[in-house]
Amino acid sequence: MHIVVPIKQVPETSNVQMDRETGTMIRSGSAAIVNPLDLYSLEAALQIREQIGGKITVITMGPPSAVKVLKEAIAMGCDEAVHISDRAFGGADTWATSYTLSEAIRKLEADIVITGERATDGDTGQVGPGIAAWLNMSLVTFTAHIKEISDSHIIAERLVEEGYQTVRAALPAVVTVVKEIATPRLPTLRGKKKSMQINIPVWDAEALHAKPEYLGLKGSPTRVVKIETPKVTRTCIMVKAIDEESVRNAVTQLIQFLDDRDLVPVQKRSGV
């Protein structure tokens, strides 16, 4: 079983402070980390390998600095890594990104591809399904539990609007996972040692035999027209509640506020 896990380097945002004037994120000093949801796909891959054996190759597309996230994945226990990097890949949208990654996955001859459902920076969740389409693999998105996996198929539970949906998919497949799938493990000492020694090949456009017209900004069907910082349009009515009376008054004000917006329940719902 060859498990390929595409991961992404994203800016660290968990400790970011907000600029009180503009309502934007203060980004200075934010480091690059593994996309948090990719830790869950890495964990899922490690568990599959423990269960049925195989090899895990972690890949990322990004500038030279992105090799750092591959090393982290190796430290967690992945076997091999490939860094997909070329100036020609720059500015790719999800269409061109999924094409580029899929060419690498094709070359790796993956049986199963496991990805985080989305990355926390772009927040599109489009690359995983795109890879499945490029490679004509089965697609299982929003996966919360893997119930069964063999060389031929996977049975998994998806978290959908109606509840948990169990699907059976033939391999090869692309599986995108949500947080519920597993709890990511920490890197091991042995893994860290390995990550320092491992030789990570860099694959460029030529190595992938990729179509130049499908790469990077040039190959992207979408264009960013403008980027705006949303103005804080809300003016907050802030009421302090420090003692019994002020609590009572604050709550009365709140209910009036909600009432003006038609948001207060009138009656206990009685099936009407």
Binding site: M18, R234, M238, V239, A250, V251
Partner: peptide, 15 residues
């Protein structure tokens, strides 16, 4: 509170 329309500052267990 920076993005809220209405905020009550206080002890949620009494509010």
């Amino acid at each position: 509170l920076q993005v809220a329309d209405f905020a009550i500052v206080g002890d949620l267990f009494s509010i």
